[in-house]
Design a protein around this nucleic acid. Sequence first.
DNA 1: GCCAATTGTGAAATTTAATTGCAATAGTTT
DNA 2: AAACTATTGCAATTAAATTTCACAATTGGC
Lengths: 207, 207
Amino acid sequence: MKNIPIASVERVAKYIRCLKHLQKKGEEIVSSKKLAEHTQVTPEQVRKDLSYFGKFGKTGTGYNIKKVVKRLSNILKGRKNWNVCIIGAGALGTALSRYQGFKSAGYNIVALFDKDPEKIGKKIGSAEVYDIKKFSDITKKKDIKLAIIAVPAESIEEVEEYIAKSQIKGVLNFVPVTLNFNTKRKIAIIEVDLAQKLYILSYLTKK
Amino acid sequence: MKNIPIASVERVAKYIRCLKHLQKKGEEIVSSKKLAEHTQVTPEQVRKDLSYFGKFGKTGTGYNIKKVVKRLSNILKGRKNWNVCIIGAGALGTALSRYQGFKSAGYNIVALFDKDPEKIGKKIGSAEVYDIKKFSDITKKKDIKLAIIAVPAESIEEVEEYIAKSQIKGVLNFVPVTLNFNTKRKIAIIEVDLAQKLYILSYLTKK
DNA sequence: GCCAATTGTGAAATTTAATTGCAATAGTTT
DNA sequence: AAACTATTGCAATTAAATTTCACAATTGGC
C-alpha cells in the first residue's frame, strides 16, 4: 500500500459501517450503486476507493457483503483486535469507556488512567482506573498501543510526557490543544475537537 | 463568501482555538509564522486561509490576537451565541452536556431530550431532560437551531423524524449511521463516528 | 446466446493546496 | 529622517490530491 488518499481511507471506514448495517438487515449482496446511495457518495467513488485496496466485487453481480466487511476491516484494523486505554476518567472519559461502538469495531477499552486518588481503583464498565504514574508499566503489561486522551486542557503536557515515554503508537485526542510529541518514533495522532465541529456546523448553516 | 475550501474553514477554527490559548497566556500580537508553528502548518497557509475571510493583520507587525479572535469567531459562529440541544441522555449525551468546551466557544447546551420516562425531568448540568415528544415545541420555545444526536443506533430513524419536523438547521451526529433527512429545507450535518476514528488511527500506525 | 447489470481502472478533468515572489507598510535603530 | 527589518496580503504559478468519465470485461438471468 503506498499512496492511498486519506479521504479514501475515511470513506472505506464509512463503507464498513454501512455494510455491517446492511448485513444486520439480512442482505448478502450489494452493488456499488446501492452502497453509494447509503453513504452519499457516487458509485464511481465507491469503486475507486475500494480499488486502492484490491478487488472486492464480482463483475455484473456486486459485492458479497460478508467477505468485503471482513477483508476491509482486516486492512484497516488488522487481523487482531486492539487493546485501547483512555486517559482521563472524567465525564467524557467515562462515557467513552462505555461506548459500545468501540468494542463492536474490534477495539477493547481495557484500562483508564487518572491522577485523582478518588478515581484510582474504581471500575468503569469493564475496565479499571489506574494511577497515571503507572502508565508505561500497565500499557506494556496489557499490550495497549492506542490511547484516547480526555483530560482537562491544563493536564495535557503531563499526559504528553507519559505517552512519549511509553509504547503507545496512536492517539485519539479529544483535548482542544495541538499535540506535539518530541519522540523519534512516530506516533499517529487524530484530533477530535468537539467545539470546532460546532463552529463549522454553524458556519455551514449560514451558507 | 463563496468557494472557501472546507479544509481552510477547519483550520480557521483551529486558529481560533490556538489564539485563545495564546491570549490566556497574555500574548497580544502574533505573527503568521508563530501561529503556524503552534498549529503545525506553514505561515503561507495561515495567511492564505485568513485571506479568504478578509484582512486581519498589520503589515510588518502581525495580528492583534484579541481582534482576530473576535472577528473570526463572528464569521464562523456569528455574532450571537447559539442554543444547542442534545438528543439522547445516555452516557455520551450526559458527558457532552457537561463538556465545558462548548460553552466557552459560545454554544450553550440548554436542553436534552430522551424517551425514557426515568430520565425525563432530571437535570443534567445546567439543562433539563425533556420528553422527545415535545421536541418541536421546546426547541422552538428555547430558540434552538442546532442539535447533537447521541442515541443508540436503533432509535435514529425516530429521531430523524422529530428533527425533520422541527426548526433545527444543523446536526452534529455521533450515531454511526448516515443520516438522510427528507426535507426541503437544508439541514447541515456533521458526522462524528468515533469507531471510525480508531479504524483510521490503527491504519495510520501501520504505515 | 443474448441482454442487462455491474465491476475495475486508466486517463482526463477538476479541485484544493502549496510555493514563490514581491510591493507595501509599520515599527525600530542609527 | 533615512535606513533597516519584519511581516502582511496577494497574484501567479506549480504541484498534488481527488473526483469524474468512459469503457472493456465479466457475470448471471432469461
